[in-house]
């Protein structure tokens, strides 16, 4: 069996450092996902409104997010805006801003899609029972929307977690960056470490994302 170079992970605190890097990535994703879900719900509801100006603004926003590579957004926010506006923005905040900017747009669009897929008769039968607009949203429309959203938003969340690997480009030491550092440091003694270490990184991403997709599958089964 060839040397996979996994042994470098057991040297010193290497594995702990890798986990620390993973936590950095997960922390950024968790915060961004939480913001995306909260604001995405609001945005999705606003997107279904009849206001033409509001609709046009959201359309442009969504298109910008879809067209622009996340990496370019990261560079603009971290390197660009800090220069132009002279504010002191940490790399982690910049990452959270960019990922939320992306997540809110996509989540908003998913929410909008789920909302308009709820039949009109659901609103009307709730209205006929004397419910107010807010009550209809809270007790009838949102619970159904959220059920429809779960599989779609899980996809988005896992994509966001995966894409956090980009944040090393603005200097955040996350799991992939730590992996690179470990590999570089052990280049002489374990030239095969690239395989073993990146394989472990792959496994770590899997361990993070897999439970989320299992949870989605479970919820889908329970609610279908």
């Amino acid at each position: 069996m060839p040397n996979l170079g996994i042994d470098v992970l057991f040297k010193g605190k290497n594995f702990l450092r890798l986990l620390g890097g993973l936590w950095a990535a997960v922390r950024i994703s968790l915060i961004s996902v939480a913001i995306s879900i909260a604001l995405g719900l609001v945005m999705g509801m606003l997107m279904t409104s009849q206001n033409k100006i509001l609709k046009a603004v959201f359309r442009v926003y969504l298109e910008v997010v879809r067209i622009m590579p996340q990496l370019v957004l990261l560079f603009i926010v971290y390197f660009g805006t800090t220069r132009v506006f002279g504010w002191d923005l940490s790399a982690e905040y910049a990452a959270i801003i960019v990922f939320s900017f992306w997540g809110v747009a996509e989540m908003g669009d998913l929410v909008r899609g789920a909302l308009i897929s709820i039949p009109k008769i659901q609103y009307e039968s709730a209205q006929a029972l004397g419910m107010t607009g807010l009550q209809i949203y809270l007790y009838v429309i949102l619970p159904q929307t959220i059920r429809r959203l779960i599989p779609l938003s899980i996809n988005l969340i896992t994509r966001m977690i995966k894409t956090t690997s980009l944040v090393m480009m603005i200097g955040i030491v996350e799991v992939l960056k730590v992996a690179q550092q470990i590999i570089e440091a052990n280049r002489r003694t374990s030239p095969n470490a690239a395989f073993g270490v990146f394989a472990v990184v792959f496994l770590l991403y899997f361990i993070v994302c897999w439970p989320i997709s299992r949870l989605a599958a479970y919820l889908e089964r329970r609610w279908s």
Partner: peptide, 10 residues
């Protein structure tokens, strides 16, 4: 009461 079954499915 409506024609289509309009119960809340959830």
């Amino acid at each position: 009461v409506f024609q289509s079954y309009d119960l809340f499915p959830h």
